[in-house]
């Protein structure tokens, strides 16, 4: 009887249980203090931006006090802008547009980038030739100038701004996706899938793409930060939707007065800085967690 139970125990596998890759990634990420603080910071920023209008209902467009009141005066924690509008209200309300444009533009460029990278890496030949030339073209194009032209010619609506950012920032994703596809398409499991009759669409979307996602995810996270910076740059130059408050727009509005009233630019800039910082901390953490080989660096 005892004998039997011992034998049963010895049938247990002696190797450690293999963790699901996602759980391993999550565990690696959770062990990264910088990445976790980035996540916490971003969480606070997103919550404040989403719930802000209820938490702090002052209208960001309403003139509430004299222009350029310094921070703290008359109960306005961050002071007022060049028209006497509450700066804190503008920052809290402006987060929504900034984050929305950042995410939407990043999504658009990830979509374009994956399409270009996957098609050229999978089909090679003339398709690759053409798609890579187009990618090179967008690498050469001075991105900010081109977006400025687009927004100036076709109107500064949020949609146009998002499009103008997304259309110029996808080349990195395309290059990474293509490199991954070139690498993975030669692997045995792809050959196995192909020989068992998988269609090209299946190979691209169900076999190769899921396996090439890790670096793309990291790049996508960084792209959100990039798009936020880009939107801020456009707004700073005056190319923002006049009906929507955003962090960049606050800085653009107060641009002529930087020397005398620097605080009107400092605080919204700080909001952008902290947001992009937290996003890149998360991106770095994801990179480490998804690439165990790089962890030793």
């Amino acid at each position: 009887m005892t004998d039997y139970s011992i034998r049963e125990r010895s049938l247990q596998p002696t190797v450690a249980r293999v963790e699901h890759p996602l759980i391993e990634t999550a565990r690696m990420f959770a062990g990264n203090r910088a990445a976790l603080s980035g996540l916490a910071m971003l969480f606070i920023i997103v919550v404040v931006s989403l719930a802000g209008p209820w938490l702090y209902p002052t209208d960001p467009f309403e003139m509430v006090w004299s222009p350029f009141s310094p921070p703290g005066a008359k109960g306005f924690l961050l002071g007022t802008d060049y028209l006497g509008r509450d700066l804190l209200a503008q920052i809290i309300h402006g987060g929504r547009a900034t984050l929305a444009v950042g995410c939407a533009a990043a999504l658009l460029s990830v979509f374009i980038g994956i399409t270009f990278g996957a098609l050229s890496g999978f089909y090679r030949g003339w398709i690759e030739e053409i798609l890579m030339r187009i990618t090179e073209f967008f690498q050469v194009l001075p991105t900010l100038l081109f977006s400025m032209v687009l927004v100036a010619l076709f109107g500064a609506s949020l949609g146009m701004i998002t499009f103008a950012i997304g259309i110029v920032s996808w080349t990195g994703v395309a290059r990474i996706t293509r490199a991954e596809f070139l690498k993975i398409r030669e692997l045995e499991y792809v050959t196995a899938a192909r020989s068992s009759g998988a269609s090209n669409t299946n190979l691209i979307f169900r076999v190769i793409l899921p396996n090439s996602l890790p670096p793309i995810v990291v790049q996508a996270a960084l792209l959100i930060g990039f798009a936020i910076l880009f939107e801020a740059g456009l707004s700073f130059l005056g190319l923002s939707d006049a009906n929507v408050m955003s962090w960049g727009a606050i800085m653009g509005n107060n641009r002529p007065y930087i020397l005398l009233h620097g605080f009107t630019i400092m605080y919204p800039g700080l909001a952008i800085f902290l947001t992009v910082l937290s996003i890149s901390l998360i991106g770095d953490g994801l990179n480490d967690a998804l690439n165990p080989k790089l962890r030793k660096r």
């Binding site: 910076l229 620097g262 630019i265 902290l274 992009v276 890149s280 901390l281």
Partner: peptide, 22 residues
């Protein structure tokens, strides 16, 4: 490298102006 990436370049410029010119 974190700070250099996350700070909007025009904001860095304005902060430098306020610090080292004003």
């Amino acid at each position: 490298s974190l700070v250099g990436y996350a700070a909007p370049v025009f904001w860095t410029g304005i902060m430098l102006i306020i610090l080292f010119a004003s």
